[in-house]
Amino acid sequence: MKKLALSLLVCFAMIQITSCKKEANNTTEQKEVTVEKKQAAFSLQNAENTISWTAYKTTDKVPVKGHFKKVNITSGGEGDTAKEAINNAEFSVPVSSIFTNDSSRDFKIRKFFFGVMDKTELLSGKLVLENDSIGNTDITMNGVTKNLPFNYTLNGKTFNLKATMKIGDWKAEKALDSLNTVCKDLHKGADGVSKTWDDVAIEITTVFK
């Protein structure tokens, strides 16, 4: 009888030990599942990002406006402040996402401007904020990487950048001539001269959520 009681006691103890181990394992698993990565206070991935541009035609310098419908953040872009999220963020822009509210014009820009350039399916760059109002970005286009200075403002959750690109700085005169040729009549002013300007105004606006 004593042996039976002892055996039962040993079995009971083993069951208790096994149950405790399972409970401990379950607790550990639950802890592992509930651990989540801390979300950054400011994220360019989750922000509303717009890249707009203004080109010019005719000798009167008539503006032609457009924007890119897609912007990819390829590195960085997160921080405890808006400035921290923007500084050193890298991005790429598919030229196929260009939009001017004129499908014929969009096609011509893609084919006869960007399409003439070398390795320009994407425009890419890195934003560097030097102080509270100026910065620079290394823009890669036509196989050329060139530094572009810009001015910016940062009000609350809204970042706004303005810069002016000179197409010739990226050795893209051939692409500009190609576009002007296909748009020759459309780029004529009252003086009968067809002209596509070398400078393009760039504006980037980011609104953090």
Rank of each mutant, 00 (worst) to 15 (best):
K2F: 11
L6H: 10
S7W: 13
L8E: 07
A13C: 06
Q16V: 12
S19V: 15
C20W: 14
K21S: 11
E23F: 06
E23L: 07
N25T: 12
E32K: 10
E32N: 10
V33R: 15
V33M: 10
K37T: 10
A41N: 15
A47V: 02
A47E: 00
K61D: 02
P63R: 13
V64E: 00
F68Y: 15
I73F: 04
G76Y: 01
G79S: 14
A85V: 05
I86K: 00
I98S: 00
N101H: 09
R105D: 06
R105W: 09
D106M: 06
D106N: 11
K108W: 08
M117D: 00
T120S: 14
V128T: 13
E130I: 05
I134N: 10
G135I: 03
T140R: 01
G143N: 02
K146F: 05
N147C: 08
N160G: 09
L161S: 03
K166E: 06
A175Q: 09
L179Q: 02
C183T: 09
K184W: 06
H187N: 13
A190K: 14
D191Y: 10
S194H: 03
T196I: 08
D198E: 05
D199N: 08
A201N: 13
E203S: 14
I204T: 03
I204S: 01
T205C: 03
